[in-house]
Amino acid sequence: MGFTAADLPSFAGRRVIVTGANSGLGLVTARELARAGASVILACRDTAKGDAAAAGMSGDVGVRRLDLQDLASVHDFADSIGLVDVLVNNAGIMAVPYAITRDGFESQIGTNHLGHFALTNLLLPKLTDRVVTVSSLMHWSGVISLKDLNWKARPYSAWLAYGQSKLANLLFTSELQRRLTAAGTGLRAHAAHPGYSATNLQGHTGNKIGTPIWLTLNKVAGASPEYGANPTLYAASADVAPDSFIGPKFGARGPIGPVGRSPLARDATTARQLWDLSEQLTGTQFPL
């Protein structure tokens, strides 16, 4: 049957941050880590929704505001945090209509990658164990455009923009691990993907035709958020090799463990170039 949340070891005495923890995979991830004894911070843009989610959890759970589409909010959040054992970069948006963040980034790369990039760098001096970043099978469709990361010079495609952001998650993880290893720290960076999990992400595409199709597919083929959170929980707790990518063995379903990634996700040169560009765009640097 493989790993499930019931197999989590004790997290007593450990502190964890989960971004986007008020719904979907993030809610389940936070709930299960709290159940295992962790002190969990739900980092949410809407703190009212975060409070509602926290009310349904047992254990030591707190809510703090974090808007990944606003770098000022990311700085404020990071400044408010003390020592943390595990950072789970879970929050994300999927295939939404074109929009820009407060800092002028295309919203998907801004939320899914650049916001988490800044958050991670700001928190690294306070981290003791690992960073887990949630990617997607859709990274296989992703191509990084270093010249037009924010879709200002090409026709916008919601799905290609999503694929680019999820590929960026994996390149970020690999380059982060390279830097952590070079710095001689024991910190680890992992990525995870949920397979095909039915969450509220599929209901916000803004497409009158596509959204009903996705919601129907959710009912027919989508796995539960509880199943979809298992790879993240595994990556947050298991003793696996640095830069592991964790997901279901058979893509959308199957036992949880290390899985493969696309050739573009293994491109170390692009990973370093994306890191340099992300530093320029966010004004944050690797601090160790």
Rank of each mutant, 00 (worst) to 15 (best):
T47G: 13
G283S: 02
L171F: 09
G37V: 07
R261A: 15
G206V: 09
I256K: 07
G184A: 06
A161D: 10
L8I: 03
W275A: 12
G50V: 01
R130A: 03
D148N: 10
V28A: 07
S107N: 15
P125R: 06
V28Y: 08
P263Q: 06
G26I: 01
P255V: 08
N230K: 13
A153V: 04
R188P: 08
D103F: 01
P194V: 14
S262G: 11
G210V: 10
T29Q: 01
G2S: 12
M57A: 00
G251I: 07
P263N: 07
H204F: 11
G2V: 10
D239I: 00
A271T: 02
P97D: 03
T181C: 08
S80R: 00
V131K: 05
G251D: 09
I213D: 10
R178H: 09
S157H: 11
P255K: 10
A252I: 06
P125Y: 05
E175A: 04
K152F: 08
I93N: 13
A191V: 04
L25A: 04
D276W: 02
L123D: 03
A91I: 00
K249D: 06
S278N: 13
R253K: 14
F250R: 14
T4G: 11
G92Q: 10
A238T: 13
G82D: 15
A52V: 09
Q177M: 11
L25S: 08
R272A: 15
I100Q: 15
A223N: 13
S145A: 14
P9K: 07
H75W: 07
Q108L: 00
I100E: 15
V18C: 00
T216I: 14
V63G: 00
S278I: 10
G115Q: 02
A168N: 02
V74C: 01
K249Q: 14
L42R: 01
N207G: 12
D60P: 04
T47I: 15
A265Y: 05
G110C: 09
D51T: 15
N89L: 08
V86H: 09
T269S: 07
T133Q: 10
A182W: 08
R35C: 09
R14A: 02
W159C: 09
A158P: 12
A182K: 13
N218T: 10
V61G: 03
G62T: 15
A43M: 04
A48D: 15
T216K: 15
A78T: 13
G104H: 03
G13P: 03
V63F: 05
I213W: 06
Q108C: 05
G142I: 08
G257Q: 14
L233G: 05
G228C: 05
F245S: 10
G62L: 09
L25Y: 05
A168K: 08
L233P: 00
Q108D: 06
G260L: 03
A182V: 13
N90V: 01
I246F: 06
P258I: 11
A265Q: 10
N121Y: 04
A12V: 14
L187P: 06
W214V: 11
I144L: 06
R266P: 04
R15V: 01
T173W: 00
I213H: 12
I93A: 14
L264W: 03
